[in-house]
């Protein structure tokens, strides 16, 4: 028999040892005690008055701990899925032939939601992205130029700066169809004040690209909660009758 079982067995004989009183006290703190158990505790407390003080202290400590946990959980409250993205295949609901553009957009949107989950979050990430986007527009931020430009040029790429290189990449990417959205999203990771009054920001640049592949898999938890590759149910486009 395990020690845990032994602890439990001790509860069957109230008042016979400290373990039982401790368990009763814990059940009262947790609001799990029955009326009979409360009466039993009161009987024990009448024999040992320090038990009432212990109960008060235990309830107070539990309140402190629960308050700290609640505060931590409140800080996480904004995180979660914002859209209906589970189940069903990408493109479900697309009408009959001739609506390729619409289907394309829906499929793109679905892929974005199901794979990247870009924009699927309520909370700090999206808010930070919007804020950064306002103050650090692509190609005009403090990043790039100076030493970076020299480094890029010396590497033989022939671009004036990293921003120039990025601009060329985006332009060619859009022309070739590889880059889907010409405006990358910037997600704030960390902002740290510098001694000279500037603020160093670390951010993630998100660029939506497009590629043609045979199959699409994503990692999803199985029944055991273990991540396994799962083939995405991507419905093929309907052909248009000529």
């Amino acid at each position: 028999m395990t020690n845990e079982s032994n602890d439990h067995r001790a509860r069957s004989a109230p008042g016979t040892d400290g373990v039982d009183a401790e368990r009763l006290l814990s059940r009262i703190v947790d609001g799990e005690a029955t009326d009979a158990e409360r009466a039993e505790f009161e009987r024990l407390a009448s024999e040992s008055p320090e038990l009432s003080e212990e109960l008060a202290a235990a309830e107070r400590a539990h309140g402190f701990l629960a308050g700290a946990v609640a505060a931590e959980l409140d800080a996480l409250a904004s995180i979660g899925p914002a859209g209906g993205v589970a189940g069903g295949g990408i493109g479900t609901g697309v009408g009959s032939g001739g609506r390729f553009a619409e289907a394309d957009e829906e499929a793109r949107s679905g892929l974005r939601r199901r794979i990247g989950l870009v924009g699927a979050w309520g909370g700090w990430a999206v808010a930070a992205a919007l804020l950064l986007g306002m103050f650090l527009p692509f190609g005009e931020g403090a990043v790039g130029g100076g030493e970076e430009a020299a480094a890029v040029q010396s590497a033989g790429f022939g671009f004036g700066s990293i921003d120039d290189a990025m601009r060329v990449y985006m332009q060619r990417g859009v022309e070739s169809g590889r880059v889907v959205e010409p405006e990358p999203r910037l997600v704030l990771i960390e902002a740290r004040p510098e001694a000279d009054g500037m603020v160093e920001v670390r951010y993630m640049r998100q660029i939506i690209e497009r590629a043609l592949v045979d199959d699409v898999y994503e990692l999803a938890p199985d029944d055991g909660g273990v991540l396994v590759p799962v083939r995405l149910d991507v419905r093929p486009r309907r052909s248009v009758a000529m």
């Binding site: 996480l76 989950l117 938890p221």
Partner: peptide
């Protein structure tokens, strides 16, 4: 904790359709 909860939320979205026993 935020990073982990975000990851859990993403896995929740991806995996909830595969749960065979809703009671579990």
């Amino acid at each position: 904790a935020e990073d982990v909860v975000q990851e859990v939320a993403a896995l929740f979205v991806r995996g909830v359709g595969s749960i065979r026993d809703p009671g579990a």
